[in-house]
Design a protein around this nucleic acid. Structure first.
Length: 792
RNA sequence: GGUCAGUUAGCUCAGUGGUAGAGCACCGCUUUCACACGGCGGGGGUCACAGGUUCAAGCCCUGUACUGACCACCA
């Protein structure tokens, strides 16, 4: 063995061996372990499919480490363990990536047409998907590649069609003209969840609307002057003494040559602004609701790109909404109708992908009625069928489900699952799995022309099926029976609504059971200064750069190329040079994985600190050298494999064996509770502070001066404790443990093609020896005392 | 406006009633005998603040301050 642990030389070799030998595939594992799958308990994890928009970041690597540790742990414990890999087509995000690439060549999506454009996206999907799978492989993740899925492959595609058709048949899907969040750049509806509202500085304009009977005017307050072109009423509080006598009268809408009524509605807040609100049902969710209550006309004055349309007075047509705002204010001022302009902070809704201000927009879309689905999902958690870890995330989950709105699932995008709905020439819609099915079901002969819906589904509409579409649903496959519900979902809190809740609803609806028994919510991985990692901030780390190391210049280059805002490059370069003055030194996969685990305390975000990883790289080296010491002392000698030969166990031997049992108990508890930080700490502490610092030292005299039986006992203990520790540690550090185990296991009377297939250590209470522990604790205290005196 | 976290050593974090902990960083000594990615020794915290419960409180209760996150239709 080399004097220093060199991860690079062993990682690639084991990765390949494990995968090629089928150790990631449950059937093979069962066979090699000599077990009957029918009698093995099932354990399964479906990977949260990474988006094929780019490469994996630290957050993925962290979650994957958790999932792999859980999978390896259960596999070793004799579970029929499946970790199923896959990727997500990520409709909007991926389409945007490809559109941006084309834009760099001066090509627009519409220049290519739907089919050609989709070819380009598939090309990108191949490229990005391969990068991702390479990253997953390098980290030693034991996913079953033979079961790999993609959300738009044939199997998942069929599942999505089935989902839509069945929900439609169950009366839970409807098509309707409703006010939706409209992204005027993407030209598609988006769901409530895809809107990010942030407080921004704006203005509150006060305008005078003259009363039609000439008896004065009302002053309305608005943050969006341009929408006044679509006003169809003015509202006051019915009990507002200032205005209640005006209810029923009309005002002349300036600039528009229209009269609109003054209505009373207790939604109006008398304290806010002037206490008078202009009502634009087509361009505001509240106004829309009020319009419904009062039967107001809906006047849409915007085009899909948020320019003023022909419903508005000629002077404003074709203007962009912000330009129109300026003009409306100017024109009202000229007319002497501008009463005041006040600074005002308001929540501005922006599309999470484009960052542009989203418009409430009236369009025809497909919706899912969520109420009933949500109730079941709520109940499943209350009844304990599904458990959150840490528990407090239940509040987040409940709160959203209790206030759920219908889900707009159609997107005017090309990249995604095509909606299985067809329209006849009259615009009537028919839903079915195929056009043939629709024709036969509704008795439409060839004389009727049918056209499939041009839109596609919200990505999450397919992600919601992931726990079972991956297993073959709607076909009742063996896999589905075996591994649904899955054991645990490992994911971030940021997608509890987007994904967790929706999987719960769909799972319960279609399979009558929750999709996973436990939901382990991880924190977000942030940089060492606590900032969220993002490409635009230039603080992202590629997990493999920590594994293999990267020179400063390469890191700077990596972080500053392909930016959406190239002007950020200077700042990013400076901060990168400050944070990594000498680049990043390689730590290897095992150390990085161990770092993630050690940082994975529950309910907290993780500040990733490269120094911590270096510390655990040292830990790897410590283990490596402990193994070296053991091998040097036992190789070619009797290690007590033959139990009939005499072996005299010393207090130290019995002490370390006793401590080991306690470690095994602790480890099991920490796995059970998802306390990977404590798990890592227990292992670290035992190996370094007990086994290396004390036991190895205490064994030296016995090895050198003891009689034959004492030497044999010491060698046996050295080997067996190390061998056991390797198995305990394997789920966290797969490579290092495998490499050493191959040499140590035979000396401990064990062996096999891989440590992956060995049994996970279980505590044996018979080996707990309190007397020996007390002896050694006394000895330790004595030695420490002597050292202290010497130190002075 | 509502909700949920967090505030413990220079930094990152453990610690759910009984004499303050870890890693990293720091200081001193130490390179022949597994490992300098090492060994040995050491310094360092009135556990955000104020009350309360208790024989005993980082830990339980009440309140305050600050930080962060999420949800929400005040034009």
């Amino acid at each position: 063995m080399d004097k220093t642990f060199d991860p690079k030389s062993i990682e690639a070799r084991w990765c390949e061996t494990w995968e090629k030998s089928g150790y990631y595939t449950p059937e093979t594992v069962a066979q090699l372990r000599g077990a009957d799958r029918a009698t093995m308990p099932a354990y399964s994890i479906m990977i949260p499919p990474p988006n094929v928009t780019g490469t994996l970041h630290m957050g993925h690597a962290f979650q994957h480490t958790v999932m792999d540790a859980l999978t390896r742990y259960h596999r070793m414990r004799g579970f029929d363990a499946l970790w199923l890999p896959g990727t997500d087509h990520a409709g909007i995000a991926t389409q945007m990536v490809v559109e941006r690439q084309l834009a760099a060549q001066g090509i627009k999506r519409t220049d290519l047409g739907r089919e050609k454009f989709l070819e380009k996206v598939w090309e990108w999907k191949e490229y990005s998907g391969n990068t991702i799978t390479h990253q997953i492989r390098r980290m030693g993740n034991s996913v079953d590649w033979t079961r790999e899925r993609f959300t738009m492959d044939a199997q998942c595609n069929a599942a999505v069609t089935e989902e839509f058709v069945r929900l439609f048949e169950d009366g839970l899907i409807y098509r309707g003209k409703r006010l939706v969040n409209w992204d005027p750049v993407l030209l598609t509806a988006i769901s409530d969840l895809e809107v990010e509202s942030k407080e921004e500085n704006g203005k509150l304009w006060h305008f005078r609307y003259p009363l039609a009977d000439g008896s004065g005017h009302l002053v309305v307050a608005t943050t969006r002057p341009e929408t006044m072109l679509g006003d169809t009423a003015v509202a006051v509080h019915p009990e507002d003494e200032r205005y209640q006598h005006l209810i029923g009268k009309t005002v002349k809408l300036p600039l528009c040559d229209r009269e609109i009524p003054v209505i009373g509605d207790d939604y109006v807040d008398r304290e806010f602004g002037t206490g008078v609100v202009k009502i634009t049902p087509a361009h505001d969710f509240n106004d829309y609701a009020m319009g419904q209550r009062h039967n107001l006309p809906i006047r849409n004055v915007f085009t899909p790109t948020a320019q003023i349309n022909d419903e508005a007075p000629a002077a404003y047509r074709g203007l962009d909404r912000f330009e129109a705002r300026k003009r409306v204010v100017e024109d009202l001022e000229k007319l002497g109708l501008l009463d005041a302009i006040k600074d005002h902070k308001l929540m501005v809704p922006r599309g999470d992908r484009t960052g542009v201000v989203v418009e409430p927009f009236l369009t025809d879309q497909w919706f899912v009625n969520m109420k009933g689905l949500a109730e079941r999902a709520l109940k499943s958690v209350k009844d304990g069928q599904m458990r959150f870890v840490p528990e407090n995330w239940v509040n987040t989950y409940d709160q959203w489900l209790e206030n759920i709105q219908d889900w707009c699932i159609s997107r005017n995008l090309w990249w995604g699952h095509r909606i299985p709905a067809w329209y006849d020439e009259g615009g009537k819609h028919y839903v079915g799995r195929t056009e043939e099915e629709v024709r036969s079901q509704y008795q439409l002969d060839a004389s009727v022309t049918l056209k499939q819906d041009e839109d596609s589904f919200d990505t999450w509409f397919s992600s919601a099926l992931w726990p079972f579409s991956t297993l073959g649903w709607p076909t009742p496959t063996d896999d589905l029976k075996r591994w649904y519900p899955s054991s645990v979902l490992v994911t971030g809190f940021d997608i509890i609504f987007f994904w967790v809740a929706r999987m719960a609803m769909m799972g319960l609806h279609f399979l009558d059971d929750v999709p996973f028994r436990e939901v382990y919510i991880t924190g977000l991985v942030r940089d060492s200064e606590g900032n969220k990692m993002s490409k635009s901030k230039g603080n992202v780390l590629d997990p493999l750069d920590l594994v293999d190391g990267i020179a400063l210049e390469d890191l700077v280059k990596k972080r500053t190329t392909g930016l959406m805002q190239p002007q950020m490059a200077v700042k990013i370069e400076a901060s990168t040079r400050r944070m990594f003055p000498t680049g990043i030194e390689p730590v290897g996969v095992d150390a990085l994985r161990f770092t993630f685990m050690a940082l994975a305390s529950t309910g907290r975000d993780i500040r990733f600190d490269a120094a911590r990883a270096s510390g655990y790289r040292n830990f790897c080296n410590k283990i490596w050298n402990a193994a070296r010491f053991v091998l040097m002392n036992v190789e070619g000698k009797d290690c007590g494999q033959d139990a009939s030969l005499p072996a005299t166990l010393s207090s130290a031997d019995r002490w370390i064996a006793s401590r080991l049992q306690k470690l095994e108990t602790e480890v099991a508890g920490h796995f059970q509770n998802y306390r990977f930080d404590l798990l890592a700490q227990s292992l670290y502490q035992f190996i370094w502070n007990e086994y290396c610092d004390w036991y190895l030292e205490l064994s030296k005299p016995a090895l050198q001066q003891g009689d034959e039986a004492a030497q044999r006992a010491a060698r046996r203990t050295l080997v067996r404790v190390l061998e056991t520790v390797l198995r305990l540690l394997h789920p966290l550090m797969p490579f290092l443990t495998e490499e050493i185990w191959q040499q140590i296991a035979p000396l401990a009377g064990r062996g096999g093609p891989s440590i992956m297939l060995a049994d996970y250590p279980q505590a044996n209470p018979d080996k707990i020896d309190e007397a020996a522990e007390a002896d050694i604790e006394w000895l330790k205290a004595f030695i420490l005392g002597v050292r202290q005196i010497r130190g002075e």
